[in-house]
Amino acid sequence: MAVRPAKEKELYGQLTLALEKYKGKPGVLIAALQEAQQVFGYLPRKVMIHVANELTIPLAEVYSVVSFYSLFSTVPVGVHRLEVCMGTACYVRGAEQLLKELQKKTGAEPGKVTADGLFSVATTRCVGACSAAPVIKIGEELHGGATPGQLDALLEELKKR
């Protein structure tokens, strides 16, 4: 989602404030980036530079950490972040088909957000709800026992939120 400049400035202010507690401490980069991602929803280059400058850590190191961990996203995410679990239990119970259907129904391409900014579709690692496989993660919420037939209703419900 494109962020309005005024809003963007506010977000950077928020981030600078949040980073204060990490300055000069060892072993804080991952936690700092997690917080940055919470503020912006994802970690574009500009945000990484900001974190690097604030914590006086080389940008290369920041990037090496961001690109290493699957939890960090360098691409924008939708208002509703849909993630299909691709763990083994979900896979053998049809997660792949679910993912395809979800992409088709929302029109969200991998790594992109729908034109209205509402949805992004991605995969996630096992969320530990394997007994309810297949699982879709919607923001922080987990939706177990998902079937392609439920998707229309689910997406409609999300649009109303």
Binding site: M86, C126, G128, A129
Partner: peptide, 11 residues
């Protein structure tokens, strides 16, 4: 708990 399909530690 990295094994995709294990959830005892979470529980």
């Amino acid at each position: 708990e990295g094994d995709p399909g294990a959830f005892m530690d979470r529980n």
